[in-house]
Amino acid sequence: MTSQADFLQPPRPAVWLVNLFTSAEEAESILGDLLEEYFHLVSKSGVAFARNWYWRQTVKTIAHLVGAGFRVAPWLTTAAAVGGFLLLRFVSGLPERAIFAVLHRYQVFEHHFNGYVFFATNGIAIGHVIVSMFVGCIVAWRSREGRWLLR
């Protein structure tokens, strides 16, 4: 359950994403700045508005940092993105195979038809999202390494 104190904090996935795309030194200033403005907005305009603002800032900030990473280390960032794409192509079929293996193993089709339909449609989409996020994290991590190397 989410407590009141947790609810007032900025969205955790957004904080995690900023951390992922920045070096430790950069994260200290950027996350500190975001938190300072976030709390100011919470008291001025409410939590919902502040959380929206935090997400907007996170998305734009990541886009700029990736762009800056590309300018500083174009080959390494490109290699990370291409490597990530190839990895995605390589592993994208795995969730599908795993889901169908589980469905057949427990004979879901015969016993729980609705469950079968749900997993056969949404399960694959969820699997793809998980794989894409996993690959995205690897790309971000490699891009960040590149920026550190060239500093």
């Binding site: 200033s29 800032q57 886009a63 700029h64 940092l65």
Partner: peptide, 12 residues
């Protein structure tokens, strides 16, 4: 303006 744009420019 995003904070990321400010920091990316400051770094440059």
């Amino acid at each position: 303006v995003s904070i990321g744009a400010v920091y990316a420019t400051l770094d440059r």
